[in-house]
Design a protein around this nucleic acid. Structure first.
Length: 213
DNA sequence: CAGTGCCG
DNA sequence: AGAG
């Protein structure tokens, strides 16, 4: 097996045009990120949202930043306050903003300034079926996704749901960035296996940054 | 509107 | 296991 991307920085794997897996990119700040996740969750608790189809999601979610993604019986939407508490979402921690900006830059997207940050918590068995992120108005900004805790298998496909997705094992500190021609790529997470990570126990935490406006 | 889910 |  040869090196398909010789000359590229170690640990940066191209998944598709405009899509990169930055292996271990957030490893050195992972503890700080997790501490900030805990702080956010204290103000905006994780909840299991209900899809418009009436099913309760296996992944628990919360948000920080100016606006947050939510799902309700009536539909998906970005909201400036937490429907669970009525309060505004907590501010985007500095550690989040800095990491998101640097990861986007490393993937070729300059000046990424996310206004939305969705935090997903997976227990063993939790999953996110194949979908597109398409509730954002800014179609030029990338998606930045940070994996923490127990590993998971990430599916990354094409622009059509029928395109067979490739699978990548994402570990603590890995970051995936996709934008440009891959901005609307289908992606998902297979059911998370039982596991243990010293910083999260049996949980997987994912932090996803988007620019809505 | 709803496929970020279920069925098979 | 995973198409539709």
């Amino acid at each position: 097996m040869g090196d398909l991307f010789s000359g590229m920085a170690e640990g940066h794997e191209q998944l598709a045009p405009g899509a990169w897996l930055l292996r271990g990119f957030a490893r050195d700040v992972a503890s700080t990120l997790l501490a900030d996740v805990a702080r956010v969750a204290q103000v905006a608790p994780f909840r299991h949202l209900v899809t418009p189809g009436g099913y309760t999601m296996s992944v628990a979610m919360t948000n920080c930043g100016r606006i947050g993604w939510t799902s309700e019986a009536r539909g998906y939407r970005y909201a400036s306050s937490d429907p669970g508490t009525g309060r505004q979402w907590p501010d985007l921690p500095e550690s989040f903003a800095d990491l998101a900006r640097r990861a986007a830059e490393a993937a070729g997207f300059a000046d990424f300034d996310p206004d939305a940050c969705l935090i997903n918590r997976y227990v063993p068995g939790a999953r996110l079926s194949l979908h597109q992120d398409r509730d954002e108005n800014d179609r030029t900004a990338p998606i930045v996704s940070v994996s923490l805790g127990v590993p998971a298998v990430f599916q990354f496909g094409g622009l059509s749901r029928s395109d067979k997705p490739a699978r990548y094992r994402l570990e603590h500190g890995d970051v995936v960035v996709w934008g440009g021609p891959s901005r609307f790529a289908y992606h998902g997470v297979l059911p998370v296996a039982e596991g243990f990570h010293p910083e999260t126990g049996n949980l997987r935490i994912n932090i996803t940054f988007r620019k809505v406006f």
